[in-house]
């Protein structure tokens, strides 16, 4: 099996959102002249979990891209066959040309990562920078991460390296293709 992945280190992610903006710039998601807050599409988001009571507290933050599901519900939901899981890379891709704008994929996605372009009537999302990786580059989020919390590579190798380094894969968060470690 081939499966490219992003490995996100919960010990290093500080929730700075640098990856979100850099990703938007690269994928040209922002209308710089007209954009207003809270209406700009995004392929990544930051989630967090706060635990404990004062003064014994913990805060964990992590970034959520498309999880490139092993058995992707969006692929199954798409009547237009516009979504495929690429056999060579394991990346789930939406073909904007084929997309008929039914939004079925958005409905089906359990992780709420699919965006919709109302003006041009198509769904779009993180494709792990498909074009870049074929040219030997890494995805933008992994390149710009302020703390080097995001690592790109073959899922099995990333996992192996993490284990070799004495790190733990957070199983509950890593059920799909993206890995979370602490």
């Amino acid at each position: 099996m081939k499966q490219l992945s992003l490995m996100i280190d919960l010990e290093r992610c500080i929730g700075c959102k640098t990856c979100i903006v850099a990703c938007r710039n690269y994928h040209e998601l922002v209308d710089y002249e007209g954009a207003m807050p809270n209406q700009i599409p995004y392929y990544l988001r930051v989630e967090s979990k706060r635990e404990g009571t004062y003064p014994d507290l913990s805060l964990t933050t992590w970034v959520v891209p498309c999880l490139h599901c092993i058995k992707a519900p969006c692929v199954e939901a798409c009547q237009a066959n516009a979504i495929t899981k690429d056999l060579e890379t394991g990346i789930v891709r939406i073909d904007a040309e084929k997309c008929l704008g039914s939004k079925d994929c958005i409905e089906a996605c359990p992780y709420d990562v699919i965006q919709f372009n109302e003006k041009e009537n198509f769904a779009h999302k993180c494709d792990m920078c498909f074009d870049r990786i074929h040219a030997g580059e890494i995805p933008v989020c992994a390149e710009v991460c302020l703390t080097n919390a995001i690592t790109f590579g073959e899922r099995e190798l990333l996992k192996q390296r993490a284990v070799d380094d004495g790190r733990n894969v957070v199983k509950a968060m890593s059920t799909q293709s993206i890995l979370y470690i602490r």
Partner: peptide, 27 residues
């Protein structure tokens, strides 16, 4: 189009730097 940290000087740029393009072309 894009912004990065300069690798000759540490190589990192934060979220504010990345969002500089929105400043440049603001209405």
């Amino acid at each position: 189009k894009e912004i990065r940290g300069n690798p000759r000087h540490g190589g990192k740029a934060c979220v504010k730097a990345m969002a500089g393009i929105s400043l440049e072309y603001a209405q």
